[in-house]
């Protein structure tokens, strides 16, 4: 049931084998495509490999020219520095990310329900506003938030950062939820109505369970964007006691221009959520990119 109206892109599983086009004749000659594909991927992912390589390089070898292509004689001093210094920042980012997920889903899902299934007046206008909202540069938002937070004393607070970061994900969340929910068969909603369910009850017991894939996609993006955010963190939270990992890496680069192994080790650790998402939720990631057509 949960898959009947997924956003474009998830309809086809990643390995679209068995399509009429792949005739057995072609199969024989695809090894060179695999080779080419591996080459392209390796080229594309070289910077990622380089993070890994540098993170394990001895400090004395960092300035070596040419650099070591493989981590010969690897050291873990970079990772030790991460665990000594960066754990609080990672914890802060986790907190901010989870806060954003909750805030985004709580606000976006009911609104999408109103727009797509309750046929709210002005739903189209709201949709349009959300599309436009996604186009406002973060730097402008950051200035507005800064001006407001100065007065309210919310600068350098976790709550302030969660609120600001959530603005990246909320419009996207509403659009994605609404796109999915408008594909839910009306009969299902009607049936719930017949059984005497209120609009709220229908939302909680019928619409949300069906929409759990969308909820997952929205949550993933809300988390990832909050985790990766630099502009809000560096403007609204730069002198805070609890700074997120992005800002922590930035400060670290500013203070330790020589310890690139530690910087890259932090970068490795900061990329863990991305790696987890890729392994466990690649389908939802692709769905999110195409459905909301969003970026950065």
């Amino acid at each position: 049931m949960a898959t009947f109206a997924e956003p474009a892109g998830t309809r086809r599983p990643p390995k679209g084998r068995g399509k009429g086009r792949d005739k057995p004749v072609k199969k024989r000659s695809t090894w060179w495509k695999t080779a080419l594909g591996v080459f392209f991927t390796a080229l594309m992912l070289f910077p990622v490999y380089w993070i890994f390589n540098v993170s394990l390089t001895q400090r004395s070898d960092l300035r070596k020219n040419p650099p070591n292509i493989f981590p010969v004689d690897p050291t873990f001093e970079g990772y030790e520095a991460v665990f000594d210094q960066q754990l609080p920042a990672l914890g802060t980012s986790l907190l901010v990310g989870l806060g954003c997920v909750v805030l985004t889903v709580v606000i976006a899902a009911p609104a999408a329900y109103a727009i797509s299934l309750l046929r709210m007046k002005g739903g189209k206008t709201l949709n349009f506003i959300l599309l436009v909202a996604q186009m406002i540069p973060a730097v402008v938002m950051a200035m507005g938030f800064y001006a407001i937070y100065v007065r309210l004393g919310l600068l350098n607070s976790i709550w302030g950062l969660i609120l600001a970061d959530s603005t990246i994900a909320v419009p996207f969340g509403v659009l994605l939820f609404a796109a999915f929910m408008s594909g839910i068969p009306r009969e299902l909603i009607q049936a719930a109505k017949m059984d005497g369910a209120s609009a709220w009850r229908t939302f909680i017991s019928v619409v949300m369970p069906i929409s759990r894939n969308s909820a997952l996609t929205v949550s993933l993006f809300a988390f990832l964007w909050a985790w990766s955010d630099f502009v809000f963190a560096s403007t609204l939270n730069r002198n805070g006691d609890m700074i997120p990992i992005t800002l922590s890496i930035y400060n670290y680069i500013g203070n330790n221009t020589t310890q690139w192994n530690a910087i890259m080790a932090t970068a490795m650790v900061a990329s863990i959520p991305a790696a987890i998402l890729l392994v466990f939720a690649q389908k939802y990631v692709a769905a999110g990119v195409t459905a909301g057509a969003v970026k950065d």
Binding site: L45, V48, F230, T246, A267, A270, A274, L277, L278, V289
Partner: peptide, 11 residues
């Protein structure tokens, strides 16, 4: 190929 897009920009 999605990796570059998923990494935090600071990284």
């Amino acid at each position: 190929f999605l990796v570059p897009w998923l990494l935090p920009l600071i990284v």
